[in-house]
């Protein structure tokens, strides 16, 4: 079925993914030491400089500056930490909650299913801004609380998709065999069900990452977002939004940083799927 070129492509992906993702993580951890400017270093003599290749740009600020003369490259690097932290933690958290609830719902069924699924109905009906404002009112603004808000609005997607898959899986012979063989429910869920839904999970999680990092921008003007002078890609998007038709680089470069990160996780996700799925692995190792 698969020609050589395809196999080569499949083989290269994890490396590229690893490299990209590694680069992003690296800049999140060490970047702030390496870039020349702090995220809040204002310079009113260099306001809204375009990237270096455009007229008026300069190499000292390769991707330009913002309305306070702050260096975009430095801000993207500084922002990586919070964006990745918020992105990864919320995705892992909502993925974990959603997956287990989804598996329980689909596998056990009956009252458990009704309970969890009706919870998803309730959750889906709640506007996230409302939840965000309620959390601000109750807990005050902080990064931790953004994570809470996003995680409690986000687990539903995982739960519903996993449950759908489990509903049809649980009728399969190999599950019935496991049940007859005396496997406990947690064991069945973990060893027999989970591996069979992992593909969808990975796709969902990688889809989610970009969305969550962007989503954070929705909170920055509610006061729930990252607190200046610190910054995040979401906050940069939110700030750059009104300038989009005047200074395109403000929102576009953080957007590209997000895209780059999502690309890396997608490639890594494909690789992870290949490792976890013994059948597919064959193709890759040929």
């Amino acid at each position: 079925m698969k020609n050589k070129k395809t196999i080569l492509y499949l083989k290269k992906m994890p490396i590229a993914g690893g490299v990209i993702f590694g680069l992003v993580i690296f800049s999140a951890i060490l970047g702030p030491v390496l870039v020349p400017y702090g995220p809040a270093d204002q310079d009113f003599s260099k306001v809204l400089k375009p990237p270096f290749w455009q007229n008026g740009g300069e190499i000292k600020h390769p991707l330009g500056t913002d309305m306070m003369g702050r260096d975009i490259v430095s801000r993207i690097v500084h922002g990586a930490r919070i964006s990745l932290f918020v992105g990864l933690v919320t995705v892992l958290l909502s993925c974990f909650i959603g997956t287990w609830l989804g598996m329980l719902s689909g596998y056990i069924g009956g009252k458990m299913d009704s309970l969890i699924m009706r919870l998803t109905d309730i959750q889906l009906s709640m506007p996230y801004i409302l939840i965000a404002l309620a959390i601000i009112g109750a807990l005050g603004p902080s990064i931790k609380n953004i994570i809470i808000v996003i995680a409690i609005t986000n687990w539903v997607g995982y739960a519903r998709i996993i449950r759908g898959e489990v509903l049809s899986l649980r009728q399969m012979e190999f599950i019935e065999a496991a049940v007859v063989g005396g496997c406990s429910t947690p064991r069945i869920l973990f060893y027999h069900i989970l591996p069979n839904v992992v593909n969808s999970l990975i796709v969902l999680a990688t889809l989610d990452l970009g969305r969550v990092i962007i989503f954070e921008s929705a909170f920055s003007f509610l006061g729930l977002g990252v607190k200046p002078p610190a910054t995040s890609w979401g906050a940069m998007l939110a700030d750059g939004r009104i300038y989009l038709t005047y200074a395109w680089w403000l929102a576009t470069f953080p957007g590209l940083a997000i895209m780059f990160t999502v690309l890396g996780t997608n490639l890594l996700g494909d690789w992870l799927r290949d490792i976890l799925d013994p059948k597919r692995k064959r193709y890759v190792l040929v």
Binding site: L237, L244, A251, G255, V262
Partner: peptide, 10 residues
Amino acid sequence: LFGQSAPVFW
């Protein structure tokens, strides 16, 4: 990839 990482307002 583009669709999942480009902000809606953009």
